[in-house]
Design a protein around this nucleic acid. Structure first.
Lengths: 124, 124
DNA sequence: CAGCATCCCGTCTGATACTG
DNA sequence: CAGTATCAGACGGGATGCTG
């Protein structure tokens, strides 16, 4: 009853709407243009500072990055660490264990994105 | 060089930016509030008509659904089939083989969404 | 450095109504 | 049935400038 969505399995109407709402929930928290990208960089770099993070995500503005980080922190994907003993104050962002549960999602998306890019190229 | 993103594997800076752009590409075509949901229903129902499709995706308006379907058709995820011999004209939408390459993505997202919902409940 | 405040515009979207 | 038209409001996001 849990794993109704297999690669080849038939899907009942109920299983379909279950998937629908599960995917909806996922998109609700990690959807959007930037969230997953921020999470990826964070996971890769371990800990990283604001401006450095911005440099690693081409195209994102400080305002948007700031907003996204607050959101991600609220949802437990990111931890904001302030080193108050330094001057000027150093702020680091680190990915949480919970954000690591997204690995399968990131892998699936990344792999699909790669093959998709290849397909697009072939179409010309 | 292809499978740099493993569950435990170390990620080089290059692998990171590769993932970044791959995920970006994926989000570009299947991102947004509705696209994946439409694809899920389409895959589940096999073939389905406009109004029926709308009923299966709670909250979507006809205008948005129409626009999304055009977009999905352009990108090869959906096929629009017109049965002109009928009256009134019957239009059916069916998912393509290419849309089925998204299965791993949908599974990953769906599974993560389920555990996330569980986690949210525990937090209260 | 690490952001926040403000302005401002284009897009997205929901609601409602309408057509062939 | 299968959409399209129109409008108003929300929203996202860029540019710029400023602060502790």
């Amino acid at each position: 009853m849990e794993n109704t969505l297999e690669f080849e399995g038939p899907a009942t109407a109920q299983a379909c709407s279950e998937n629908l709402s599960a995917v909806e929930d996922a998109i609700y928290v990690i959807g959007g243009k930037w969230k997953l990208k921020i999470i990826i960089v964070l996971q890769d770099k371990g800990n990283i500072r604001f401006n450095d993070l911005q440099r690693n995500i081409p195209g994102i503005s400080a305002r948007v990055l700031s907003n996204e980080l607050k959101d991600l922190e609220l949802n437990g994907f990111v931890k904001r660490v302030v080193h108050a003993d330094q001057t000027p104050v150093i702020v680091e962002y680190i990915s949480t264990d919970y954000s690591r549960t997204l690995k399968p999602v990131i892998i699936a998306l990344s792999q699909w994105g790669k093959t998709h890019k290849r397909k697009i190229k072939e179409d010309f």
